[in-house]
Simulated assay, not measured.
Amino acid sequence: MGVAEAPEGSTALEIAASALRRASSFFPKERREFSIRRAAVVTANPALHERELLKMAGLAVSLTAAIHDRGIPHATARLAAESCLTVLGVSFERWIQEGETAAFHDLAIAILAELVAALTPPSSSDRRPRQAD
């Protein structure tokens, strides 16, 4: 799962990033065409889509437990696991878009950076006054 590969003392997000790096190995460029076709079939079939969602939910439970077993509080482990799977899903969606040529791993790292940036509050000097709507 990649969790064990994270160095001792890693944060929950660092552990999740290690799992994400490992998961990226399941999506080499040779699998892109197959993945595009598979995604189309899953999207078009509600039962398969539901099955896919159930698999991801099970993976979230397993990843949460694995991160928690590394000494991370359960709520933090769950947030990291769910975030990792969100990054995985967004990366996959981007990877199978027509014309996309980037490696899955590169997309996943970029998406993770976007998530971290989105959750990082700006410093007080970076804050701009909100404009009225």
Rank of each mutant, 00 (worst) to 15 (best):
A81D: 05
T76M: 06
M1I: 10
K29W: 00
S25L: 14
H68I: 00
T11V: 13
D126H: 06
I36S: 03
C84G: 12
R31P: 04
A40M: 05
L85R: 08
V87C: 13
A81I: 04
P73F: 04
R70M: 03
T120L: 06
A6L: 08
I96F: 08
A75S: 07
D69A: 05
R51P: 04
Q131W: 09
V90Y: 12
A108Y: 02
G9H: 12
S10C: 10
S25H: 13
V116N: 08
R31Q: 15
A40S: 11
L107C: 06
A103L: 00
S83C: 10
A39H: 03
A19D: 03
V61Y: 06
E114W: 01
S10F: 01
G89C: 06
R21A: 10
L88W: 08
W95T: 14
D133F: 06
L88V: 05
I36D: 04
A108F: 09
V3M: 08
E82H: 09
R70L: 01
S18F: 12
A6H: 13
A23I: 13
S91A: 15
D133S: 13
R32K: 15
A40V: 04
L88A: 15
H68C: 03
G9Q: 09
T101L: 10
V41M: 05
A23S: 11
L53I: 07
R127I: 07
G89F: 08
R78I: 01
T43L: 09
N45V: 11
A23W: 05
P122R: 11
A117F: 06
L112W: 11
R38A: 15
L115T: 11
A57S: 04
A66N: 04
A66H: 09
A4K: 08
E98M: 02
G99A: 13
R22W: 14
A118M: 14
A75P: 02
S18M: 07
V116H: 03
L107A: 01
R94S: 08
S25N: 10
A81P: 13
V3Y: 08
D69P: 04
F26N: 14
G89V: 08
L107F: 02
D106G: 05
S124G: 06
R32W: 09
A6S: 06
T120N: 02
E5W: 10
C84E: 12
E14L: 14
E52F: 15
A117Y: 01
E93Y: 07
M1Q: 00
R130K: 14
A113M: 00
E30R: 14
P73H: 03
S25P: 01
S24T: 14
L79M: 12
D69I: 01
A44C: 12
R130N: 00
T120K: 00
A19K: 07
L13R: 14
V3H: 12
F27G: 01
R37I: 00
S123C: 02
V87H: 07
C84Q: 06
L115G: 01
F27S: 07
S123L: 00
P28K: 12
L85F: 08
V90M: 15
A4F: 01
R130G: 11
A80T: 07
F92Q: 13
E100F: 03
N45F: 10
A118I: 04
R128I: 03
T43F: 13
L48A: 13
A80Q: 13
M1Y: 12
A103H: 07
